[in-house]
Design a protein around this nucleic acid. Structure first.
Lengths: 246, 246
DNA sequence: AGCCATAGTTGTTTTTTGCAACTATAATGC
DNA sequence: GCATTATAGTTGCAAAAAACAACTATGGCT
C-alpha cells in the first residue's frame, strides 16, 4: 500500500486499523437476589486464565454465529453460564478499555438481572458458582478484571431504580405479601420504611393484584398475598420511595 | 485440530469463533441542544456506503490503537466527527445485532451529549453536518441503520433525566436566568410549568449560584443571572419536575 | 381465655404543592 | 413625565400529600 503523502498514509493506516483490529467483545451478568435478609450476587470461580481461581461475574465472549444480538447473548449466558432463569434482565452499561483485561483491548456489555431466591438452581457449566452477600456496594473478596467497579455501579443502579420503579417485585416469588415487599425495599435501600406510607404508595400505584382468599401464614396475623399485575410494563412512582424513611 | 470426541470439537470450535470472529465495534453520538424554542439533534450526511447520502448520527469505528477506552473514543469523536465541545457526555446504551448493519455483525455504544446552542461550531471532517429539529421523539426524515430507534431512546432518556436531575443547565450557556432554565424544561418536557413552584424547587436544590449584580436585559424587568454551582456533581430532585405541570 | 406477634387501618399533625394575586423594574409610546 | 406593557420575582392561602403515632384485626401459642 503506497500513499502519495504522509496524510493519506496515515488515513489508510487508521482505516485499516479500524476495520481489522477490533476489540474483543464480551457480555457479563450481575444477577441479584435477596436471601437471608441480605442482597446477594451470583459469582463464578474462574476456571481459566486470566484471574484463574478468582471470583468474577458470569459471562463470556459474544459469538456472532450463535447470538443474533447483544440482548440475545445476555439471555443465552443467563442460562448457560449462570444456569438460572430470571424474570428481569436489563442492560446496565458497557465497559471497554485497553487495560481492563491483560489479554488486550476488550469491551464488555454488562446486564443486570433480578430473580427470586427460591428459583435458584445453580448448574454452572464448567465453573463453580454461588451466591455471595453484598455488603454496601461490594463483596468480601477480590474480583477479577474491573468487576468490583461494575458490581458497585450495578448496586447503585439497583438502588436508584428501586426508588422510582416497581422492579423489586422481581426479587420475590410470583406471589408475595406487602410486608415481604417492604422488607425487600428496606434490605436494599438499607433503611427502615414507614408501613402505612409504603402501603399507600404501592396500592395507589395500582401495580398489584390482590389474590383474594390467599394468605401467607406465619407467626402473627396472616398476610394478604398479591401478584404483580403487568409483568412487562415499567411502573414509575411519582416520588422516591426513600422519602418514607423514618 | 483433532478432538477426541464431538463435545471437545464443539468446544474448540466455539472457542475459536469467540476469539477470532469479533463483531465490529463503533461509537455513535446523540448530541442535543435547544435553539429556536425547539430541541435539536446533530446529524451528519453519510459520505460512504452503507446508507450513503442518508442522515445519521455522528460516530464511527473505535480504534484500539488510538482509543484507550470507549469513553475516550466518544470524547474523540465528539471533536473529530461532530466538531463540537459539550459539557455533558454520558453513555446511553449499546446496540448490537447481526442485522443492524448490512456489512454484518456490529455493536455500537451510543453516548448522549448536551451543549449550549451558542457554542455550536460545525466543522465536520468529511461529512456535512447540521442541527435538526426533533418533533416528539423523531426527526422529519429517514435515518440510516437503527438510528431512529436510538434517537427515540435518547430523547426518552433525556426527558426522564430532566425530571430528576439538573442536567438541563448543560443545554444553556454558563450564565443563564431562571426563566431561561424553566423555558428549557418546558420545551423538552413539552408542557408549561408553574413559575413559583419551579423556582422554589430549583432554589431549594441549592445547585445554582447567584451572580449578584449581573442581569440579563430584555423587554420587561431584567432577570437575575445564575451559574451552575458544581459542574461535576449530579444533583437529584426529590420529586419529578413534571409534577409542576399546570 | 389471655398473651404475643405480626398485619393492616385510621386519624392527626406537618410538609409540600397548586394556584392566583400581588409587587418590582425595565422599555415604550404619547 | 407618565401611563402602558411586558417580563421578573414574591407572597399568601387552600388543597393535597406525607410523616407519625395510635389504633384495631387476626392468627398461634400456652
Amino acid at each position: 500500500m503506497i500513499a502519495a503523502n504522509p496524510g493519506e498514509a496515515e488515513f489508510l493506516r487508521r482505516y485499516d486499523a479500524s476495520w481489522y483490529e477490533k476489540p474483543s467483545f464480551t457480555v457479563d451478568l450481575v444477577i441479584f437476589t435477596v436471601r437471608d435478609e441480605h442482597l446477594h450476587v451470583l459469582l463464578v470461580k474462574r476456571a481459566e486464565h486470566p484471574f484463574k481461581g478468582c471470583w468474577a461475574l458470569p459471562g463470556g465472549f459474544l459469538d456472532p454465529r450463535r447470538d443474533a444480538s447483544v440482548d440475545a447473548c445476555a439471555a443465552r449466558k443467563l442460562v448457560e453460564e449462570a444456569g438460572v432463569r430470571a424474570p428481569y434482565l436489563e442492560q446496565l452499561k458497557t465497559y471497554g478499555s485497553r487495560d481492563r483485561d491483560p489479554r488486550g483491548w476488550t469491551a464488555t456489555t454488562v446486564y443486570f438481572a433480578l430473580m427470586a431466591s427460591a428459583s435458584v438452581r445453580l448448574r454452572g457449566n464448567q465453573a463453580e458458582a454461588c451466591w455471595v452477600g453484598v455488603r454496601g456496594d461490594r463483596v468480601d473478596f477480590d474480583l477479577g478484571f474491573d468487576h468490583a467497579r461494575i458490581l458497585a455501579d450495578a448496586v447503585e443502579r439497583l438502588r436508584s431504580k428501586l426508588e422510582y420503579t416497581h422492579i423489586a417485585v422481581h426479587l420475590l416469588p410470583e406471589e408475595f405479601t406487602l410486608p415481604e415487599l417492604q422488607r425487600t425495599y428496606e434490605i436494599i435501600l438499607q433503611q427502615p420504611l414507614d408501613k402505612s406510607s409504603f402501603r399507600r404508595r404501592v396500592v395507589q400505584a395500582d401495580m398489584l393484584e390482590e389474590l383474594t382468599g390467599k394468605q401467607r401464614d406465619g407467626f402473627g396475623r396472616p398476610a394478604q398475598l398479591y401478584r404483580f399485575r403487568d409483568y412487562d410494563r415499567q411502573t414509575f412512582f411519582p416520588r422516591s420511595i426513600s422519602r418514607h424513611a423514618r
